[in-house]
Design a protein around this nucleic acid. Structure first.
Lengths: 236, 236
DNA sequence: CCTGTAAGTAACTGATCAGTTACTTTCTGA
DNA sequence: TCAGAAAGTAACTGATCAGTTACTTACAGG
């Protein structure tokens, strides 16, 4: 039941420190032959994602975002209205990118057990590769999800994994491979939680246990553990 | 295996919105007959815990903390040196209170399965009753655990639950009730994670699933789920 | 009972920063 | 081809806030 061989973990390790959201390089005034509203908007959004992820909502500076994006601060207000409006746009963009990366999850097996294992491992890898998402989500929850709640875009994105979990649970229960009576939302929260918590709290956990949680060996162990935990639980 | 009957969940629900750390009422100038350094320090710490939990490190205002504590802003610098020093003291105090509440966990059974179930439920209840701890920990991780790392107090507090988990795992494996080869630290992180994530991300999760995660019924379901998840996994 | 030190106060300051103003440049479509 | 709108710039502003200053009040030990 070890799926970790599929993915060379070491390849992702740098991703936890090096945040690279939607590409969109800063727009240098010199190389900008002509005006390009789309590009300006995108480069502000990209710079803002990095700044907010690195320093939080209060910690991020609009001046820094402007400089980093190569645009002018005035443009932030032109396109996004306010700092909060910009943060909300960053969240919406980030949520939208999750939906986009659904395609990344190609369950190679029809077998519910194998498929569920892949799903759990995918979830772990996803958080590993998108540390900026973890940080933004943390920040948003610290603020009572005010931006998500007032955003139709973010709210309408029903976590697509839940439907997949639901379907696997049904097939697995029917074939006698899974226990019955599992609430897919509860299971979703658990699958997300065991990986998310590891990454979101890795700094305090590393300090307290004196274990480098971001080292390749530790990541491999954790990945295997989360898969075993969920599959072990789901046995009938 | 349902332990939820032991605890009337509804009793704790208010705790998630109403934050009440170490007592220490604000010191009103009128009713303060005499000087009391200990009391002043404690009341600043208490007010700071509430402010930092509510608004984060950047969001909290030293003026508000001073007003709320009944002390003067000058006293914050007198006793804690800086805003960061105060935040670190708040973290240390909060960690210390965890250790103090260890006594709350009286495993009533020698049976490893029952005892582990109680431990998981205790962990859930603990986060439910200490939302300020969840927020402070989130905030600290958003800042790379800088305060915890530079604090001997906080770092020296090896999560005591890990030892207990370790002991239960050994006894359960010996008696054939638990699977073997489980890393106690991995299990600890999972036990903490499935409850912590539920509370720390309850705002975005509630918004996305359109389910009131803080409602008594939801809490009861979640509590039961986390216990079943861990015990289900640990079966041989 | 008095003197030095610690506790406490209130008003201030200098830096920072979100958001604005007043302006210039470029594009579009009639 | 030119008028008006949108894109873009740089300098400014008013509010905020962490931290300080200059001061008063209380207390403990000799």
């Amino acid at each position: 039941m070890d799926l970790s061989a599929n993915l060379p973990i070491s390849k992702y390790v740098t991703a936890t420190t090096d945040i690279k959201p939607t590409a969109s390089a800063p727009v240098k005034a010199a190389e900008r032959a002509t005006r390009d509203p789309e590009r300006t908007r995108a480069s502000i959004l990209s710079a803002a994602t990095q700044e907010f992820a690195a320093k939080g909502l209060e910690g991020a500076r609009t001046d820094d975002i402007a400089r980093r994006s190569g645009a002018n601060k005035r443009m932030i207000y032109h396109y996004f209205g306010s700092k909060d409006g910009l943060f909300q746009a960053v969240l919406e963009d980030t949520y939208a990118r999750i939906r986009g990366s659904e395609a990344d999850l190609q369950l190679t097996s029809r077998d519910p057990v194998l498929a569920m294992g892949q799903l759990v491992a995918f979830s772990f890898d996803w958080f590993l590769r998108h540390p900026e998402f973890v940080k933004l989500l943390n920040e948003e929850n610290l603020h009572g999800a005010a931006h998500v709640r007032s955003s139709n875009v973010a709210r309408s994105l029903n976590m697509p994994l839940v439907e997949l979990i639901s379907e696997l649970l049904e097939r697995g229960a029917a074939s006698g491979q899974f226990r019955t009576g599992v609430d897919p939302v509860q299971l979703y929260i658990s699958i997300a939680g065991i990986s998310y918590f590891y990454f979101s709290n890795r700094h305090t956990l590393s300090a307290i246990f004196n274990r480098p949680l971001e080292a390749p060996g530790e990541l491999r162990q954790r990945r295997q553990h989360v898969v075993e935990l969920i599959l072990g639980y789901l046995r009938p």
